[in-house]
Structure formats: C-alpha cells, structure tokens
Design a binder for these strands. Structure first.
Lengths: 126, 126
DNA sequence: CCGCATCCACCACGATACTG
DNA sequence: CAGTATCGTGGTGGATGCGG
C-alpha cells in the first residue's frame, strides 16, 4: 500500500482504453457521418450530397469502418437501380450526443482559435 | 423561395466549419492532454508521466499547438532546474465537457466495437 | 527539467478512372 | 446508383540524440 496511482480517474489506464476507441472515430469524416445520420437513415448518394467535400472513396471507407465497428447498419435493396440505406445502430446512436456536443463546441470556438493562431503567427514578425 | 437547403442544422455549411475546428483537435493526443489538464495545472514531466505512451516530442508538439490555438497557457518559472506549468485557458476549459463526454463514451463502448469487429473479421473465414 | 532537431516509416486522404 | 481499383502525396507520429 504505497502511494495511490494518481492517474486521472476517467482516463483510467493512462488513456489507453480511451485511445483505443478514439483512434476509430478521430478520422476526418466519421463524426460528421454519424452527425448526419443522426436525423434519419440515408442512402449513399444522399450522404454524399450532404458532405460537400468528401470523396466517394472516403465515404465508402468511412461507412465500411462504421459498419465493421457496429455503429452503422447497411441495408441493400435488390432493385434497379440499386438502393442502399445506412442507419445508425443502437451503439451508433449512443454516439450522437458526444458527437454533436463536440460539433457544437467546434462551431462556437473556431473563431477564437483562429484569432489566437493569427495573433500567435504575428509575433514571429516583430 | 424554392425548397429548403436540407443541410443538417448543426452542421451548417455541410460541416466545413465543424471540420475546421475538428481538424485541430482530432490528432492523437490533444483531447487526452486536455482531459488530463482538466483536473489541475501540471508541469511538463507530470503530463509526460500521466500519458504513458506519448513521446516527449509529441507532448511538446501537442502543447505548442494547444498554446498556439489559445487552449492552453504556458508559464515558465526562472528557476534551476527550470519549471514550466501548463493550464487550460478559458477556451480550453470549455472543451473539457465535450472531451470528457467523448472519453466517457469511448470507455463505455470500446467493448462493443471490439466485439463487432471480431465478428466481422470472422465472416471472412467462412 | 524542458525542449528542439533530425530522420524516417507509414497511412490517411485525395484524384481519377472504371464496373455491376 | 453504389461502389472498386489504382496511384500519388503530405503529414502525423515515433525513435533517437543533443542542448540550455
């Protein structure tokens, strides 16, 4: 019984567990896709349209990873032309609040960060 | 006044604003450093110890970027040996809740993701 | 104690073209 | 419509060693 571990409570094992999960959602598009699917299930092209800057390749990849991790379900209808719908699973929906919370923060504070960065750069010119 | 834009409300401009801010915090260590500094201001070495897997280089880089973006303040005391303390700024503190919310989610659901992934892989062996 | 410099491997991401 | 295939690139992040 020497001193306590003194690692952060929520981080637990020094953040290893947190990182294991984080590393799967901190890519460029995952949270945005989740946020977009939060409202309603969507087909591929609809998602594609709502994320103006994503490439087809990245959308495909992101969705596949989300499906693999059990956050998104994929439903293909045998029609012509083909129709595929994506929806959040139970686990996926549990990510909505965290994702939107972060998105909300981003929108509210991107200005301050921008300003701070600009002022920071300007100090190199003194 | 034709149809509405039908872009997600919170994503606003198709996620561009959100991405601008996200791209600055979705690196490997930023959120963990913020979460660690949430409890108390810390010096370099203390941070280093609490993040068992980070390299000195990455901690330095992460802290510098956080300082540049105005999320962390750096205070150097002119002593021997040198002492430098890092603390969250006002803006930095505003990120605590979103960061911990996400961390909490990560801890709670990393298991399900792991399981889903394992089961997904196993289907390739059928 | 704190941090920077250098070097380097990898992979996330994008552009493009093509298919069922 | 809903993807796949291929290739190229920048940048993130790790290892190591030096310096104030």
């Amino acid at each position: 019984m020497s001193g306590h571990q003194h690692t952060c409570m929520i981080l637990g094992d020094g953040g290893r567990t947190v990182r294991a999960a984080m590393d799967r959602i901190r890519d460029k598009w995952t949270l945005l896709v989740v946020a977009t699917l939060a409202e309603s299930r969507l087909r591929f092209t609809d998602l594609y349209r709502r994320l103006p800057d994503i490439s087809q390749r990245m959308l495909t990849l992101t969705l596949k990873n989300l499906e693999r991790d059990g956050l998104v379900s994929r439903t293909a209808y045998a029609e012509v032309p083909p129709r595929v719908e994506y929806a959040l699973t139970e686990t996926g929906r549990s990510l909505i609040i965290p994702a939107l919370t972060l998105a909300q923060w981003a929108i509210e504070h991107v200005g301050e960060m921008e300003a701070s960065r600009t002022e920071y750069e300007s100090r190199r010119t003194d």
